[in-house]
Amino acid sequence: MKVLWLVAVMQLLLNVAGVNLEQLQAENKKMLPPEQQDQVLNLGMKVLPRDCHEMLLTSSGRARDGVYLIQPGNAPIVAYCAMREGGWTVVQHITVNSSVSFDCTWAEYKHGFGDVAGDHWLGNEYLHQLTRGPGRYKLGVKLVDKDAVTKAGEYDPVLIEDEASGYRLRLGLFEGTAVDALTLDTENYLHDNQRFTTKDRDNDNYFQNCAKLEFQGVPGGGWWYDACAGANLNRRNVIYWQKDCNKERLCKYAWMMVKPSDTFKLVQGADCTKDEL
């Protein structure tokens, strides 16, 4: 009886604080340390946004950077939202020599690992749920080198196929200040249209498993390998992005993010006097 009374009191206190107990049961709750779970910025929301961009629109542009509950599929998840940059949902963040190991299994890459407020992989299943729509999504990449020079780029559209397809990566046109390291075959590697490979599931085009190959004792981590890589943002000792980030040109941080595409873009017609849709 005493236990039931304590539960009732706790329920009342949480409701008064505006916390919805059901929405605290995020499918990837393990990616947020218990002491930080009360810092989720939209705990009181009754209807969750599909992604961070929808959250930004719902707040009339007032939402700030931080961890939010979103629901791209059947269950809520926690994700970090880069609101100041336009409502991007962060799906990957890595710091060179991170304490978080990216040498993980298929199941770990499927459901995510790390800390959503720090170094992490959100999860291939959630990447699939986010990018399958409705509507088109784009992929953003941001790189910061040791001199604090930032380069960025966007692939529009992006689609991560389902698990049965090996979470295959599908990319559209690239635009940005960074090198296009995923769709241009400048180093005889093409990551677009590749299936995902992990140390326990080899889907690449090399005679060995690319995720197991080591540099300075650190395995490559899961990625959309070809044979093997012109880019790999999941190798924590060397962030690799062709000529922008490599063994000689060290990068300190990398992010991958997704958000809905623009519904249309203005294209300047060569033989026209005005912009066309």
Rank of each mutant, 00 (worst) to 15 (best):
G220H: 03
L139D: 08
D271Q: 14
D147A: 09
I160W: 03
P260A: 05
K142D: 08
M1D: 14
T198D: 07
L48V: 05
M10T: 15
L21F: 12
L173T: 08
E214A: 12
R62K: 13
T273H: 09
Y68V: 05
C210M: 10
N246W: 05
F264L: 11
W241E: 02
H53Y: 15
Q71W: 05
N193S: 15
A152P: 00
N232F: 01
K46V: 07
D226G: 05
Y189R: 10
T58P: 01
R249L: 06
H128C: 06
R136I: 00
K2E: 13
K30N: 09
V218I: 12
L14R: 11
Y68R: 07
Y126A: 11
E27N: 13
D226P: 03
F196R: 07
G123D: 04
V16P: 00
V78R: 14
Q194Y: 04
V67F: 06
D147P: 03
Y68D: 04
T198G: 06
L143T: 09
R170S: 10
K247S: 13
V100T: 15
L48E: 04
A254H: 07
Y253S: 03
S59A: 05
L213S: 08
T273C: 07
R249V: 14
A82C: 01
I94Q: 13
L57K: 12
I94Y: 04
R236Y: 03
Q129W: 11
V100A: 01
G73R: 04
E163N: 02
I94N: 03
V3E: 12
F207M: 10
I94P: 05
E276P: 00
N42Y: 02
P76D: 02
G176E: 07
D185Q: 12
E248N: 14
V267M: 09
T89S: 09
K30A: 14
L173E: 12
H128E: 11
K274R: 13
K29I: 15
A229L: 00
A17S: 15
T197E: 09
L182H: 08
C245K: 06
G66N: 09
K252L: 13
D38W: 11
L4D: 14
Q39R: 13
E163K: 04
S60W: 03
A148N: 15
T177K: 06
V3M: 06
